[in-house]
Nucleic acid binder design. Structure first.
Lengths: 110, 110
DNA sequence: ATAGACGGTAAGTGATAACTTACTGTAAGT
DNA sequence: ACTTACAGTAAGTTATCACTTACCGTCTAT
């Protein structure tokens, strides 16, 4: 699966977004993250793994605990994916808006 | 569910992204979209509904066919969501990177 | 060394969601 | 009017995925 695919899938889940958003203010250990969430600690661990594989989150051992923090790489990947669309969409949207009445593409018959 | 939640969920699916990407070059009818996809036409219809509810896609009737095109609103929503993070993340990441060695937050003991 | 905290992993369960085929509706063509 | 093309909807199936409890490893402290 693509990098942005993993990131999109990771952030598609509500609970996972909650975990992710609790990292906005800075690094947190797992127990801290699970404390005020409606799911169990193992569930949070599993979500963190998905987020980590999507490069949205980093883990760092500190003694007994593991501090999770936001990894900018995943966000950057997502941003680039969207920006890639943005230019094309604006162009295609503009130029195709009035042309869509007839043929529906640039590379199609008519 | 939030607007960006719907958009993230819609784009999390591989097949749905394929449909979405086929609209990059301009509007297409459903049959045209389904033609070179590994799933049935009704499946594509169902995906289009999800994309439409996420405001990622628009539908426009033209005679017998329905032309689908990209709706910039969903992309914009997503962009704003990410940008909301972006500023915070860069700031928090920078300032918290070296501080994470001790207390793990801004509002915590230690 | 034993105990207690922290947290990842395994295995199983239930709900969701992506697919299929069958059906319905509508617009255009003959 | 009848047929054909286009596409949304219904119903049912299967696979995925988020969750649970139970278990295991590791680090710190006593």
């Amino acid at each position: 699966m693509s990098a942005y695919g993993r990131a999109l899938h990771a952030l598609a889940d509500e609970t996972r977004r909650s975990v992710f958003e609790r990292l906005r203010t800075g690094p947190r250990p797992v127990g801290e993250l699970a404390k005020d969430l409606p799911v169990s600690r193992p569930a949070v661990s599993q979500h963190l793994r998905v987020l980590r594989e999507a490069k949205l989150v980093r883990e760092r051992r500190e003694g007994n605990r593991r501090l999770y923090s936001i990894d900018p790489e995943g966000l950057l990947t997502l941003r680039e994916y969207l920006d890639g669309y943005w230019g094309e969409v604006l162009a295609a949207f503009k130029s195709a808006a009035e042309r869509e009445a007839k043929g529906y593409g640039d590379d199609e018959r008519e």
